[in-house]
Simulated scan of single mutants.
Amino acid sequence: MTVTLVLVVAMAVLFSCGVYLLLERSLTRMLLGFLLLGNALNLLLLVMSGAAGKPPIGKSAEGITDPLPQAFALTAIVITFAVSAFLLALIHRSWKLSRADEVEVDEADAAIGRQRDGSGDEDVVDEDPEIDTDPEAAQQEENAR
């Protein structure tokens, strides 16, 4: 295995672990997932920049390294740091207010999602027992209004 292949495999592992952690309900795990994605992005920029060359200081322009990917990597590091600090502040504020690190399910959003899913499909079964699924009762209620 070459160094580039090792970096590609490491980048793929970081991307997959970062996406997995971002899909969790814990805010701390989301922050860790975001940090892993930021590091994977930096590895992507490093791999895509090509082979190492001469420094861009000298008399000839042959074989010098392109400084643009390095500038992109520095920019990505700064942006990742700033967003991580913001997310950490949000996590701290959430912990101070509710003493919980979990993102709760918003019932109003879930109900809207179920209504949107059910509007186009007749095969969708509503899992909420509180909602009356009898079409005649719904029609009578609609006529009463």
Rank of each mutant, 00 (worst) to 15 (best):
A71S: 01
L41I: 06
D123K: 11
P67E: 05
V47P: 03
A100L: 07
E104I: 08
F81T: 10
A89E: 07
I112T: 05
S60I: 05
M48H: 06
G50R: 02
K54D: 11
F72L: 05
S84P: 02
E62I: 05
H92P: 06
A51C: 00
D123E: 13
L97R: 03
A110N: 03
A85F: 08
A71I: 15
R99A: 13
E122T: 15
A71L: 14
L41T: 10
L43W: 04
R99G: 05
Q70V: 15
G53M: 00
D106L: 04
K96W: 02
L90E: 10
G50W: 00
N39M: 13
D123G: 08
P56V: 00
P67A: 02
V125P: 03
P56I: 05
A111I: 04
G50P: 00
G53V: 01
N42E: 14
N42V: 14
D106H: 06
A76V: 09
I112N: 06
V78W: 07
A82G: 13
D101T: 09
L36D: 07
L46D: 01
A73P: 06
L46R: 06
L97V: 01
T75A: 12
E122S: 15
V105T: 12
V103I: 12
A89F: 05
L68Y: 09
L44G: 14
I112H: 02
A52Q: 04
G63P: 04
S60R: 04
D117W: 05
A76Q: 06
G118D: 06
L90M: 10
L45E: 07
E127P: 09
G58D: 00
L41M: 09
L45G: 14
A52D: 07
E62N: 12
L43I: 11
M48P: 08
D121M: 15
A89R: 08
I77E: 10
Q70N: 12
A111F: 07
D123T: 15
P55L: 11
A89I: 04
A85R: 00
S98Q: 09
V47Q: 01
D121T: 15
A111N: 09
V83Y: 03
G120D: 07
T65W: 06
A76M: 06
S119N: 14
V83N: 03
E104R: 13
V83H: 00
D101F: 01
H92E: 12
F81E: 08
D121C: 12
I112R: 07
R99M: 02
D109W: 06
F72H: 08
A89N: 02
S49T: 02
A111S: 10
M48L: 14
D106F: 09
S49V: 05
V47T: 14
K59A: 15
L41S: 11
I77V: 15
E62P: 02
I57E: 09
R99Y: 03
V103Q: 03
V83K: 07
W95R: 08
A61N: 14
L68S: 06
D117V: 14
L90G: 02
G120Q: 13
A110C: 02
L43E: 01
